Computed example of a mutant assay.
Amino acid sequence: MNIETLRTYSLNKLGATESFPFGNDTLVFKVGNKVFLLSSLDNPISFNAKCNPEKAIILRENHPEIIPGFHMNKKHWNTIYYNGNLPEKLLEEMIDDSYKLVFDSLPKALQQEIKTI
């Protein structure tokens, strides 16, 4: 996965938007104005994804490329350093999980609005 693949995959989520609120080297993806993914534009890429706390621990224990979220709540966020060792399916699953956690936390009215877009 490269930054363009990550970007395309993330923007294909319902209501997903992108911006650079932290400067030109950090791409931020939001749904309902809430962050679900942050990615550095450096190579190799790394990104922060929200994660269920129990699952976050398991992922960190099984993959040295996954650490507690850098500059984030370490209980709920992971930083993933993509160096080619993690399967793309796992990367996509982490993006999907992050999006779902954030989307599900949105007010029901906003969720419905996004679903009708």
Rank of each mutant, 00 (worst) to 15 (best):
S19N: 05
P87I: 10
A49K: 02
V102G: 01
F70H: 13
L41R: 10
K108C: 11
K55T: 14
L11F: 12
N85T: 14
K74T: 04
E113P: 13
L37F: 08
G84V: 06
L86K: 03
N12S: 08
M72W: 09
Y99E: 08
H76F: 14
C51P: 09
N85L: 13
N43S: 12
I58F: 12
N73A: 08
N52L: 12
I114N: 03
P87Q: 07
L86D: 02
P64L: 05
D42C: 09
N33T: 12
S19V: 07
K55E: 15
N43Y: 13
G23Y: 04
V35I: 09
I57C: 03
V102Y: 07
Q111V: 10
F29Y: 06
L110I: 15
I114M: 03
S10F: 11
L37Y: 08
K75S: 09
L38Y: 10
N33C: 07
I114D: 04
S10W: 07
V102R: 00
A56I: 07
F103P: 04
L38F: 10
R7H: 06
N73Q: 09
F103T: 02
M94N: 05
M94Y: 09
S19L: 08
I66G: 00
R60A: 04
Y81A: 11
F29I: 06
K74P: 11
L110V: 13
N43H: 15
L38G: 01
P64F: 12
I66E: 00
F70Q: 07
F103C: 01
L11K: 04
P21H: 00
Y82T: 08
L38K: 01
E113V: 14
S98G: 00
I3C: 03
H71C: 04
S40V: 14
I95A: 01
D97C: 09
P68L: 02
P21Q: 00
L59F: 10
Q111P: 14
R7V: 07
I45L: 02
L110K: 13
R60L: 08
H71P: 05
L91G: 01
T116L: 15
I114L: 07
I66M: 01
E18N: 02
T8G: 11
Q112V: 15
S46Y: 15
L37T: 02
T5R: 15
A56N: 01
I114H: 07
N43T: 14
A16P: 09
E18F: 05
I66V: 03
N62R: 11
S105L: 13
T79Y: 06
K89H: 11
P87M: 06
D97P: 14
N78F: 05
L11S: 06
N12R: 06
N52D: 15
A56C: 04
E4L: 12
S40M: 08
I80K: 00
K50C: 01
N33R: 06
E54P: 14
D25R: 15
L37R: 03
K115L: 15
A56K: 01
T79I: 07
L14D: 13
